[in-house]
């Protein structure tokens, strides 16, 4: 359980993620999704309950790139903080730039990169932290629809090449179904798991695939149903997201 003052963000939430599994968490605004990730990453203490997880790396909602660092220095930030010299971290990051479609932008500042490129740099930074668990907080939320679909396909490929236990929080139901092995549906605040869907179709998945469409439709019905069963939710104060 996690509460901010009188507002309970999460309550009675329990989830288990297998090593190497990609689990997506979807839910209405303010259901405590970001809080969940921050607890898993050790940024917040739960008021009650426990987390048993290997070290987790967070990719914050906005890319949080440092504007004074070059793309390669941003991507290598976790290594540098972890003890590598700036030059070592930069070299390690640079060796991934081609695979991430960032070749030629090693020395560019974040302000010179497109939204999609910024997210890829941020994801590379998260991967290079070397932590076994990745916590992605709406990684594509700020992108236009086309870039978002392209980056979802790209992320699926990246995770296939370099499998990591991944906890993906998103608003985008189709994104969750396309990317995840399992999708958890959270209730409005205080968030807890109200449904679970296993997605079995092989990757890469198309948004138009039969299973994807069918699972997504079911999740949509559940989300709308949880919303209508709590009419107060829509009028409650804005999301407790920090």
């Amino acid at each position: 359980m996690k509460a901010y003052g009188a507002v309970r963000a999460l309550d009675g939430l329990s989830l288990h993620v297998e090593p190497g599994e990609v689990v997506a968490v979807v839910g209405p605004s303010g259901c405590g999704k970001s809080t969940l990730l921050e607890i898993v990453c050790g940024l917040l203490e739960a008021d009650s309950g426990t987390v048993d997880s290997p070290a987790a790396a967070l990719m914050p909602q906005r890319d949080a790139l440092l504007p004074w660092l070059t793309a390669e220095d941003n991507a290598g930030l976790a290594l540098h903080v972890g003890g590598a010299t700036a030059a070592e971290a930069r070299a390690a990051a640079r060796s991934h730039f081609a695979a991430f479609g960032l070749e030629g932008f090693e020395r560019a500042r974040p302000s010179e990169l497109s939204g999609g490129m910024r997210q890829r740099v941020a994801f590379l930074r998260t991967l290079l932290s070397g932590r076994p668990v990745l916590c992605l907080d709406e990684p594509f939320g700020a992108l236009d629809a086309l870039t978002r679909v392209q980056l979802q396909a790209w992320l699926a490929g990246a995770l296939a090449r370099e499998p990591r236990t991944t906890l993906l929080v998103t608003h985008d139901v189709e994104e969750a179904v396309v990317l995840a092995d399992r999708v958890l549906v959270l209730s409005p605040r205080p968030g807890r798991v109200v449904a679970e869907h296993v997605v079995t179709s092989p990757r890469p998945r198309e948004r138009s695939g039969d299973e994807v469409r069918e699972v997504a439709a079911r999740i949509w019905r559940e989300l709308l149903a949880t919303g209508s069963s709590l009419p107060g939710a829509a009028a409650s104060p804005k999301a407790v997201r920090r």
């Binding site: 940024l43 790396a57 914050p60 909602q61 440092l66 930030l77 903080v81 972890g82 932290s129 920090r242």
Partner: peptide
């Protein structure tokens, strides 16, 4: 500094000194 940037540094277990050097001083310039 932006709260997201602080959160990022904290999630990387940056020391107080690293946070100062990598994040706070540059953004204060």
């Amino acid at each position: 500094p932006d709260p997201d940037q602080r959160k990022l540094l904290r999630s990387l277990d940056a020391t107080r000194w690293q946070t100062l050097r990598i994040l706070e001083v540059p953004s204060a310039l």
